[in-house]
Design a protein around this nucleic acid. Structure first.
Lengths: 171, 171
DNA sequence: TACGCTGATGTCAGTTGCTGTCATCAGCGT
DNA sequence: ACGCTGATGACAGCAACTGACATCAGCGTA
């Protein structure tokens, strides 16, 4: 993060990261699949928590509500706002990092959909609920780290879902 | 596409693609930013069509309906189902290609949101409507190329949106 | 026709991300 | 003391890209 924020992602070589960490470049690539993965090390923890939260929801809870609760819970696992903002800035400055982040979200959505299906939610419904959940998480995150944001992350997510509901409500 | 489908994406070198095309490797990289971009050459056409479709919607149309119409229109620009299926299989077999596809969809969503804002749609609403539209496009596409699919692409998209509406409807 | 401009291509060298392979070495149980 | 195992270092190598320069075809113009 230090090197990426200071010199930019592309200008930072793997050798420099390894040197800063006091190891060899080869060792660096044993710990991280590639240069980008460094910024997404904790994403599997988030996914595990969200998936287990879905599984722990009481029976009878509607899919979208189970997903919302899981996302709010996952929101509490993120680092503080200042760090999140800096990390987001690094990612926003580089397309290949955006690609990786999108893949992580996509993988998360697939895992959420799978967790819903295990609860008996039909195939298409599970996929759509999962995608909707990830979308409100993403948009809620953007709102949260925006300069004029005041509320907490979970509130931002709820607001986004309310907006989505209003949007899709038939006329 | 031929080489990717035959030997796989990673097993195909840029030199081989260039040779097949009768040009130098350097020339190949002058036409495509990287190895992956070959499979996404037409994505900007799709984006342009969708964005202009949003702009052409009659005033007073609700955002979600304008987006739906634009997505149905964009659906008609894709190649036939057999080719789309083969291309999807190549992408599904390689994570880095999935990343690129996700980035294209994300860029499309941003462009759609921007087009909505030009129509006076509020910021957050525009983002959510755009994301919802891309989601139903993606899920509709998956349904369309599924083995047991019968209807056309536009119908798959409408079905996905109907499901999403049912999902987000309050109890 | 000769000239000069422009855009596309070829050539070549170089950097960097990433990988396979083998040696080394610390820790740890027997 | 011995052997096993997991982590690391050392090294060579491949392939994706990039920058710089030369070449060449086409094309308008004097």
């Amino acid at each position: 993060m230090e090197l990426y924020a200071e010199h930019g992602f592309e200008q930072t070589t793997a050798a420099e990261i390894a040197e800063r960490a006091g190891v060899t470049e080869r060792t660096f690539f044993r710990h991280f699949a590639d240069k980008r993965e460094v910024l997404f090390a904790g994403s599997s923890d988030l996914q595990d928590a969200v998936v287990s939260a879905i599984g722990a929801a009481p029976a009878g809870v509607k899919p979208i509500d189970a997903v919302l609760a899981a996302m709010e819970m996952g929101a509490s696992l993120l680092p503080n706002r200042e760090y999140s903002r800096q990390r987001a800035a690094v990612i926003a400055a580089n397309p290949s990092l955006q690609e990786r982040e999108l893949l992580k979200f996509s993988t998360l959505a697939d895992a959420v959909a799978e967790a819903l299906r295990r609860r008996g939610v039909p195939n298409l419904t599970a996929s759509l609920a999962a995608e909707a959940g990830v979308t409100v998480f993403k948009i809620g995150f953007e709102t949260w780290i925006a300069d004029d944001s005041t509320g907490d992350f979970a509130q931002c997510i709820r607001d986004a879902l309310d907006q989505l509901k209003a949007l899709t409500a038939g006329a």
